[in-house]
Simulated assay, not measured.
Amino acid sequence: MEKDVRVRDVCLPGPSRKFNEMVSDERKRRPGLITDRSNMHYHERKLVVLCPLNAIEVTRLLKALGATKSTRIYWAEGQPARGYQALRPVMEEFSHFYNKEDLALPGELEQYAGRASFMAAIDHIVSERSRSVYAI
């Protein structure tokens, strides 16, 4: 759901026409970001699981796996391209929806701001150590 992921994965359509145009423009400006298999059509990429799931698909998957409204969900990702509005389907279905900012003490993550690898490591650690939690 993050903009940089969408730029790299050549997966459209995105959440809106404006978003798709923004991603297409970024791909033209920086073609080196695009991952391999860019010659595949979107539907082919989706079928072989090369495209990230959108919020509706994530919600369906979690429900199919047996998640209930009381299931705790840890969201291990950066800011979605359309902001938190993009996560609305998941948040409406699962009220216990958290990310590292929700769980950290005030100021605890400041030393890692702007350091993507550290933030990803925190997400990995939280996901690995959680029990009865779906991490997406």
Rank of each mutant, 00 (worst) to 15 (best):
M1S: 11
M1N: 07
E2R: 05
K3T: 05
R8S: 12
D9V: 08
D9P: 06
V10L: 07
V10W: 05
C11L: 07
L12I: 01
P13H: 12
G14F: 07
S16T: 15
R17M: 12
E21Q: 12
M22Q: 11
V23N: 05
S24A: 13
S24R: 09
D25N: 15
D25S: 13
E26K: 12
K28T: 10
R30M: 03
R30S: 13
I34W: 02
T35M: 15
D36W: 04
R37K: 15
S38I: 05
M40W: 13
E44S: 14
L47Q: 07
V48D: 04
L50P: 08
P52Q: 11
P52C: 05
I56M: 14
E57V: 06
T59Q: 04
R60E: 05
L62H: 00
L62S: 00
K63Q: 10
A67W: 03
K69T: 02
S70L: 00
R72H: 06
R72Q: 03
I73V: 04
I73G: 04
Y74D: 03
Y74N: 02
E77D: 11
G78K: 03
G78D: 07
G78V: 01
Q79W: 08
P80R: 10
A81F: 05
A81D: 10
Q85D: 12
P89N: 01
E93C: 04
F94G: 09
H96G: 00
F97C: 04
Y98D: 03
Y98R: 02
K100V: 00
K100M: 10
D102Y: 08
L103V: 09
A104G: 01
L105P: 00
P106N: 07
P106H: 09
G107Q: 06
E110D: 12
Y112V: 07
A113Q: 07
F118Q: 13
M119Y: 02
M119I: 12
A120E: 09
I122P: 10
D123Y: 13
D123N: 15
D123I: 10
D123F: 05
D123M: 06
D123A: 11
H124W: 09
H124K: 13
V126A: 15
V126N: 15
E128A: 12
E128I: 02
R129G: 14
S130P: 04
S132W: 12
S132N: 14
A135N: 11
